[in-house]
Design a protein around this nucleic acid. Structure first.
Lengths: 170, 170
DNA sequence: TGGCAATAATCCGAATCGGATGGTCCTGAA
DNA sequence: TTCAGGACCATCCGATTCGGATTATTGCCA
């Protein structure tokens, strides 16, 4: 069926609410920051906008405090779960994008001095090493959590990719 | 000095004009499509808008046909070259982003059936294999071109990354 | 020579982005 | 007990980005 009006942010929000149970947008935002943002950044305002939109579409249910911070809390609906499952059942072969300023700089390395290129390579290698370490930490934090199995898998793929890049830059 | 009003697209345009000599935006667009777009996509309209903007900033010089298609041709100015060199002299440690729908799907694999996850992995592995091949081709096409040394290097890094991902997904 | 595909540029509404702002709540030091 | 400062939380909005749609020109060849 493929619901055309859903985009990557939609699935992030849907998936996190499904995973963590009832959540406020702020909690979603920090959850994104702790995990997904390490390979794909989404601006916080999107999270707020998107959860509202998903509620309008009936994929999330919203309850709201009546005083104080008037926090909204979202929980997933049956339709929301169905949409998430439908998306997961449809593998995509859309190519990955590596948005890396370093790679872009190297691409134009012809116009830089050898020292500049060396500096870029050093900086990139270091950055990738740091990222590797971060993914290792993520991976270890997930140790033994069977319900986080696939997140661990993501951490491992990302780790290996970072490692490969670090080696290449060296 | 770091000119704050320049962004990634700016350097892509600047760099390509520097590399290829006088170019029309259309040529730039296709040049992007043949190379950079394989790891970082920029919408075509940006190329047109950006070259115009760089001309206003004095980093490109514009000449325009007076009849027919009224094509604009851009060549790089001394300031343009300087801006490009200045950017290359400033390594960035901004982390890379892997925008991959497949990775996102895997992250939420808990909500998919094992068959779904398997299908995602298969599709991703295949996609990464194809990309590997594409980078190999790019690499070979650049063989012996000393002036394309760094582009070859980019191709190699990308190739290794794709390969690593393909292996992980398998 | 006429029609179709490739070339080339531009437009524009929608989506995205992220910095700024402003309010609420908690904690701990005086 | 109070109150100041910092963390928490939400929203806004202008600026940019995005990419599909449109229009016009040119080259090719049946």
């Amino acid at each position: 069926m493929s619901t055309p009006e859903l985009n990557p942010v939609s699935y992030v929000v849907l998936g996190l609410v499904a995973r963590d149970g009832p959540s406020t947008p702020y909690e979603l935002k920090t959850a994104v920051g702790r995990g997904i943002a390490h390979f794909w950044q989404f601006p916080h305002s999107q999270i707020y906008a998107e959860s509202e939109r998903l509620a309008r579409l009936g994929l999330l249910a919203e309850t709201r405090e009546h005083s104080g911070r008037r926090r909204r809390t979202y929980r997933i609906t049956r339709q929301g779960r169905a949409a998430l499952a439908a998306w997961l059942a449809e593998p995509t072969s859309e190519p990955i994008q590596y948005r890396s300023l370093g790679l872009l700089q190297l691409y134009f390395g012809w116009f830089a001095s050898p020292e500049d290129v060396a500096a870029i390579a050093r900086t990139q290698a270091e950055m990738h090493r740091e990222r590797s370490a971060l993914w290792t930490k993520t991976f270890e934090a997930l140790h033994g959590r069977e319900d986080r199995r696939w997140q661990r898998e993501v951490a491992e793929i990302a780790f290996k990719a970072e490692q490969s890049m670090a080696e290449q830059w060296e």
